[in-house]
Amino acid sequence: MQPIGIFDSGYGGLTVFRSIADKMPQYDYIYLGDNARAPYGNRSFETVYEYTLECVEWFFEQGCPLVIVACNTASAKALRSIQQNDLPDLNPENRVLGVIRPSAEIIGEYTQTKKVGILATKGTVTSESYLKEIANFYPDIQVFQHACPLWVPFVESGDYKSDAVDKIIQQDIEQLFKQDANIDTVLLACTHYPLLKDKIEKYLPGNVKLISQGPIVANSLVDYLQRHSTLDNRITKTGFKAFYTTDDVKDFEEHATTFFGEAVKAQHVHLEL
């Protein structure tokens, strides 16, 4: 088995996994949620880097030639260092990809006003990764960020359907649009946030496009593998899926089924805490 590895600090990456599996059902996959150490959003760059590198090494040990870091915080705080500094020593033939660049590459196709809003964790906002990446592709686009530190805990706890979440979401969206009322495109720059999509849309102006990352990352991955046939040929294709968590298996299965959209059976893996 040489599956594609998909990694997140918790459950959110399953929304990306779902889109990838729907687009590429023939491929083999391993998913790892580092739930025991989640959320990553408020942790330091050094800690997120250490955790992410450890998980990437674990994927390589499982035979994965390609790892998708389906976590915006880890993509923002750890991906570049791993790609540039660690991958040449770990396995220069393997690849580690994130979710920020694919989103930045296509964001200009959605906006007419050239004003884009980013809703993300504190860690992703602080990193300014989206500001830098979008500027590389679309220097004429203005990017406005807002951190939503309570959204991930609500989603992870399963309380995201409660009415109490609505007021918090409304306040966060108001804070974003206070920066500029002409924002016409909002990117959910955290893979947990699609579960809040219905609530978010209630408080967005009617003309605003709301974008989730799953389909974007899936389309980007298809294109990437078409352009890198040597890597694609290394990945096994039997439709196999496996799920791992660093925390309680039963709890993971219960929540993961909601995120992934079908019943999930998981196994526990111990990483250094």
Rank of each mutant, 00 (worst) to 15 (best):
Q2C: 11
P3M: 03
P3L: 02
P3Q: 06
I4P: 00
I6E: 00
F7L: 06
D8V: 01
Y11R: 07
V16W: 00
A21E: 10
K23Q: 11
M24A: 05
Q26E: 13
Y27G: 03
Y29M: 03
I30H: 10
L32E: 01
G33R: 00
G33P: 00
D34F: 00
A36R: 15
A36L: 14
A36W: 10
P39H: 09
P39E: 07
R43Y: 10
R43M: 12
R43W: 09
T47E: 15
L53K: 09
E54I: 01
C55I: 08
E57H: 02
E57T: 05
W58L: 01
F59I: 01
F60H: 08
L66D: 01
V67C: 03
A70D: 08
S75E: 04
A76C: 04
K77Y: 06
Q83S: 00
Q84H: 14
D89R: 14
E93T: 09
V96Y: 09
V96M: 08
V99M: 04
R101M: 04
P102T: 02
A104R: 06
E105W: 03
I107N: 09
E109N: 13
E109G: 01
Y110S: 02
T111I: 04
T111V: 05
Q112A: 14
G117Y: 02
L119H: 03
A120W: 09
A120S: 13
G123M: 12
G123S: 12
G123N: 10
V125P: 05
T126G: 10
S127N: 10
E128M: 15
S129F: 10
Y130P: 06
E133N: 02
N136A: 12
F137V: 03
P139H: 09
V143R: 01
Q145H: 14
Q145P: 11
H146N: 14
A147L: 12
P149V: 11
F154I: 05
F154N: 08
F154L: 13
V155D: 08
E156D: 10
G158W: 13
G158D: 14
K161S: 11
D163S: 13
A164R: 15
A164K: 15
D166G: 06
D166H: 07
K167Q: 13
K167D: 12
I168R: 08
Q170C: 10
Q170I: 06
I173P: 03
E174R: 15
E174P: 01
Q175N: 12
F177P: 02
A181E: 11
L187P: 02
L188N: 05
C190M: 09
L196A: 07
K197A: 06
D198Y: 11
K199I: 11
K202M: 09
P205C: 05
N207W: 13
K209L: 06
I211P: 00
I216A: 01
A218D: 05
T230L: 11
L231I: 05
T236Y: 08
T236C: 08
F240V: 12
Y244K: 03
D248N: 14
D251N: 13
E254D: 12
H255W: 11
H255T: 14
T257C: 00
F260R: 03
F260T: 01
E262Y: 12
A263G: 05
K265E: 13
Q267E: 10
L271Q: 08
E272V: 13
E272L: 13
L273F: 11
